[in-house]
């Protein structure tokens, strides 16, 4: 539909107001993180103030923030890499050599994504205890990989399906071995898709709290656990909590902004092109 110019201006204004409203809680949180604790709960709330970095300094000192951030980075990247290593061959097989049961297998794997995680929590916890994996980075990496594997395979599968088979076949005619076919032809051709998938996996790992809250205490605890530990029910230390949260979402906001297309495609599980 193509409305007239005036309507269009109104619509644009409404759009930005809506965006502002939606973004307001985040904006306010970021703003609060630069205030002192007193300013943060001041009446009336101040929009103009002298920004301070004291909360960030406090957060860093108080809870060894760098340690948690490192855990988040290592675990997210580790789990994403591991998931891709397992998923690329699987998705390749499904997309180019589908058997009678391929569709069933895909549906099966996706359906596990819908099952409640608490349904497997207790056995996983017991296994973790037996293997000494509680509060370890590798333990979380394994769990996150398993958690995201169905989605990662599914997404790669949809991307691989878009790659023209003729190109791979031409490569085969020229004597490419399966590994070369995947590395030299398929991966470069579906790079945006792989990037979307990796971004989604990183975001899911980064945001994950269910498993990390229950399987880690301190040594391997990522940022989500850190923030949850900060969150006092009465909103004490609001400015510091805001600083901690801001730090936790900043990489995603910045990273997401730089790769908007991949973000949209990734977050909608490849449904939106």
């Amino acid at each position: 539909m193509n409305p007239g110019i005036r309507e269009r201006l109104v619509l644009t204004a409404v759009g930005w107001i809506a965006a502002g409203l939606i973004f307001f809680p985040v904006f306010w949180m970021v703003l609060t993180s630069f205030k002192t604790e007193v300013e943060a709960v001041q009446t009336p709330p101040s929009l103009f103030f002298t920004p301070t970095l004291e909360n960030y300094a406090a957060v860093r000192e108080r809870a060894d923030y760098v340690h948690f951030a490192t855990n988040s980075v290592v675990i997210s990247l580790g789990a994403t890499l591991l998931a891709l290593v397992v998923a690329v061959p699987a998705a390749y097989a499904m997309a180019f050599f589908p058997g009678k049961r391929t569709k069933d297998l895909l549906l099966w794997m996706l359906s596990t994504k819908m099952m409640p995680a608490v349904g497997v929590l207790i056995p996983v916890y017991l296994l973790f205890r037996d293997f000494g994996a509680i509060d370890s980075r590798w333990g979380l990496i394994v769990v996150y990989t398993l958690m995201n594997l169905p989605i990662v395979i599914w997404m790669l599968y949809t991307f691989f399906k878009e790659v023209p088979k003729d190109i791979l076949e031409a490569g085969r005619m020229d004597g490419a071995r399966p590994r070369q076919e995947v590395w030299l032809l398929l991966m470069p051709l579906s790079l945006p898709g792989i990037a979307s998938t990796a971004l989604l996996s990183i975001i899911l790992c980064w945001n994950e709290a269910f498993w990390s809250l229950n399987l880690t205490t301190s040594a391997a605890a990522p940022l989500t656990t850190f923030i949850a530990s900060f969150s006092a029910p009465e909103g004490l230390f609001w400015a510091k909590l805001s600083a901690a949260s801001t730090v936790a979402i900043a990489p995603i906001l910045v990273f997401g902004w730089m790769s908007q297309r991949q973000l949209v495609r990734g977050l909608t599980f490849g449904a939106v092109k």
Partner: peptide
């Protein structure tokens, strides 16, 4: 509009 979805439930 999509940003909130990229943020963790904790935040």
């Amino acid at each position: 509009f999509l940003y909130p979805y990229a943020m963790s439930f904790i935040v």
